[in-house]
């Protein structure tokens, strides 16, 4: 189950985790090894078996749409690393 460096680089991009070439190589080796062990799943006959995403049968849970207080603006902003008044400051999205 050997992954290529390009595959790992692609996954890192999808996950938005920055990695150097050395880190990609370490990750490539480790992920390949781990996934190799998990190949064991392919031995299981799952023909016609429904997937279980959740262990408890829960269906869409709705509540009445009643207005109520949420956290205050100050509380919501208190942990923002770059606060600017009542806004959070972000980097340029477009260069």
């Amino acid at each position: 189950m050997a992954l290529t460096s390009d595959e790992v680089r692609h996954i890192a991009l999808l996950a938005r985790v920055g990695m150097t070439d050395d880190e990609i190589e370490v990750m490539r080796e480790q992920l390949s090894g781990i996934l190799e062990h998990f190949q064991v799943l392919q031995q299981v006959d799952t023909e016609g078996v429904e997937p279980t995403a959740h262990s408890v049968e829960t269906h869409a849970v709705l509540r009445d749409d009643e207005p109520r207080n949420s956290v205050s603006r100050d509380d919501a902003l208190q942990n923002a690393p770059h606060r600017d008044g009542d806004y959070v400051r972000v980097r340029a999205v477009l260069d």
Partner: peptide
């Protein structure tokens, strides 16, 4: 990071059925 990478891989296009869906079926 390792777990984010494994999960992103298992959910990514082309691998979803072989890994994630398969795991959910074995979960059943």
């Amino acid at each position: 990071k390792r777990r984010i990478m494994i999960g992103t891989y298992a959910l990514s296009a082309g691998y979803y059925d072989a890994w994630y869906k398969k795991a959910l079926q074995v979960r059943t």
